[in-house]
Design a protein around this nucleic acid. Structure first.
Lengths: 188, 188
DNA sequence: GGTCATTGTGCAACTAGTTGCATAAAGGCG
DNA sequence: CGCCTTTATGCAACTAGTTGCACAATGACC
């Protein structure tokens, strides 16, 4: 049950319409809780129903008409309560690791290539995070909020660092020690 | 669509009944693709329907009666095809990072404690992985399959290492540099 | 022989996320 | 005006995972 709280957080940072939220998700909260506009609109409806947010009365409601939302006191309390809850980390669920395991059983001609492809993707994401860090978090001025937000970003950076490191090692391990051809299906 | 393939992999490693599969999932494939027995039985039904596996004819089928499955040629092909597919990494979706972000907005009295709790969990998981590595992967004898399986395990190890590292740093950063009161529990 | 715990299989309802598409207003352009 | 693109909101159907519970066989104990 995290999406509504992600939305509350985003709306507290700045009241927005559904589409604005969607755009902001794409480059901020969405890095660690992605969501589509369909999901967001649905959730906005529920949050309004529950009395956690309300539409700003600037424009009459109509389909295709922009509608801005702001968080109500009840919503803020709900969010605060959720933050203070204990919640275990979600179990890992990673298809790439699964495919490698399957490859151990049925063989894997193109696996090294796939690993390289993933490596590039993770390197790209890492570069994006580092850019954000440099832009948004200069060394000085550390308010309490900044420190938390920076830690979150650091989480992203460290995570991508882990992936690039592991993938690099895995690739080396796969086509390195093989005396013969390489990853090719020909061997054996 | 990974669960059926996880099951195919497990069944290729060793033909099993639903409950056996469930137990093996708990300590092997389930580390990176967890699943409950309900899900597994349902999927076994589908895989049999699709002609990818079949029940061994040792016992007549009856509810409450053990039923073993083995993978058919079609199932093996399906798995091989899936392994060779390109598939992007799933987007990260992490409630802890989300809660930290929310904490930046609504405050976070107990957050450092929650981080410590997570740290312990990750340390425990890491220790478990390291134990498996020591037990199942002694330095020598590296067949192709062993190398792949070991890489997967390494993935788990490196991932937990990332978490313990990041959490340790985050905890230090949260209750370390706090000069005044801030979100801290007061002490320091 | 009856009851009880254990092993084993499975259905049903629910929740969260995804995919595809419909609808409406607004503004530009010929 | 009529058409087209962009912005914006939203419904509906589907997929995957979770939760709760039911039911069947087996063996142990009294």
């Amino acid at each position: 049950m995290s999406l509504p709280h992600a939305i509350l957080t985003a709306l507290l940072e700045k009241p927005s319409s559904g589409l604005e939220l969607t755009r902001r998700f794409d480059r901020s909260i969405g890095y660690f809780w992605p969501s589509t506009h369909q999901q967001i609109y649905r959730e906005l409806g529920r949050l309004e129903q529950a009395g956690h947010i309300r539409a700003l009365p600037t424009a009459q409601p109509a389909r295709g008409r922009k509608k801005e939302y702001e968080v109500l006191a009840a919503g803020r309390e709900e969010l605060a309560a959720w933050v203070s809850l204990a919640e275990d980390p979600r179990p890992v669920r990673d298809p790439l690791l699964l495919r490698m395991r399957a490859a151990a059983v049925v063989g894997a001609p193109g696996l090294a290539g796939e690993l390289r492809r993933h490596l590039v993707l993770h390197q790209r994401q890492l570069a994006e995070y580092l850019e954000i860090e440099e832009r948004d978090f200069p060394p000085e001025r550390t308010s309490e909020e900044d420190r938390l937000r920076r830690l979150v970003l650091r989480g992203g950076i460290d995570l991508e660092t882990f992936w690039t490191g592991w993938l690099t090692r895995a690739i080396g391990d796969l086509d390195g020690p093989v005396a013969g051809s390489g990853t090719g299906p020909g061997a054996s």
